[in-house]
Amino acid sequence: MMYDTIDIALLLAKIALVFFVILTLAAYLVFAERKVLAWIQDRKGPNRVGPFGLLQPLADLIKLLTKEDFRPIGADKWLFYLAPAMAAIPAIMIFAVIPFGAPLTLFGHTVLLQVSDLNVGLLLFMALSSIAVYGVALGGWASNSKYALLGSIRGLAQLISYELSMGLSLVPVVMLARSFRLSDIVNAQSGCWFIVYQPLAFVIFLISIAAECKRIPFELPEAEGELVAGFHTEYSGMRFGLFFVGEYINIIVLGGLAATFFLGGWHGPFLPPVVWFSAKVLAFAFLFIWMRGTLPRLRYDQLMHFGWKILTPLALVNIVVTGWWLVLRG
C-alpha cells in the first residue's frame, strides 16, 4: 500500500513539475524569441515590464486573459472552442515519455526522471504529434473564415507530409537502440551519441520538426504575409494564447526529443544530467529562433516538393543503408 501511495505521489509530483516547467519555459521562450529577434535586428526588444523586461510574459498573459473572447458569426461553436486545447494538450502529453534526467534514488526508491517509461514511447510520440494536427485542422475549419481555412488546409498537408519523413528518420534510431522505449534509446547513447552514426537522420529529423512546429521557414499555415494569421486568424484572447503557447511547447518537446534521439538525452560529462538535458533543449530552441531571424518563408510547392521528393526518399535510403550496415556488422 505504502509503496503504491509513494509511487502515485511521485508521479503526480513529476506531472506537476513537468507542467510547471514547460509552461513557464514556453512563456519565457516567447520572451526569449522577442529578445533574440530584436538583437538580430539591432533593437533592444521588450524592456519595459519589470527588470530587463522579464515580467513581459506575465503582462502578455494578463493581456490575453482580459481580451474579448470572440467567436465569428457562423463558426462551429464546439470545435472552435475545442481546437486550441487540441493543439496544446497533445504537445504537453508527449513530454510524459521523455526522460529528462538520470534515474535518482530517493528514500530507497529508484525514481525515473520521466513521467512514464513506456515501452512504446516513440510510437506514442508519433501518435500524439499526429493528433496535434487536429487542432490546426479543426480550428481553421471551425473559424468560418477563408484565411483560417486555407491555413488549416496547408497545416494539415504539411504536418502529414513531414510526419512521414520524421517517422522514417527515427527508424534507424530504433534499429540502433533496438527499442521503442525512450529510456533505452538514451541509454544506448551512453557511449556515443546517435548523431555520430546517423547525421543524415538527424538533419532530416531537424528539418521535419521545424516543419512539425510550423516554424520559419515552414510557417505556411500561419504565413502572416499571405493569410493574416493562418489557421488562428479568428482567435482572440486566451484561445489564441493556447495556440501560441502550444507552438512553443512544441518547440520544447521536439527539442527534447531531438536531444533524446540523437544527442544522448541527458548524457554528458561533468554537469548533472538534468542540466545537460535542459541545455540541449534550449540549444534547439535557440536554433529555431535564430532560424526565424534569418530564413525566409518557403513557397508552398517548394515545401511539398522538398518533403516528398527529397526528405522521404533520403530517409528511406538511410534506413536501408543502416540496415545493411547493421547486418554487415553482425
Binding site: 530584436a38 538583437w39 538580430i40 539591432d42 533592444k44 534569418t294 530564413l295
Partner: peptide, 19 residues
C-alpha cells in the same frame, strides 16, 4: 548561402542596438 545568412544574423546579435 543558408549558413552565410545564419552567420550574418549571428554577428548582428552582438551589435549595439540603434534604439
Amino acid at each position: 548561402a543558408l549558413l552565410t545568412g545564419m552567420w550574418i544574423t549571428w554577428k548582428h546579435m552582438f551589435r549595439r542596438p540603434v534604439t
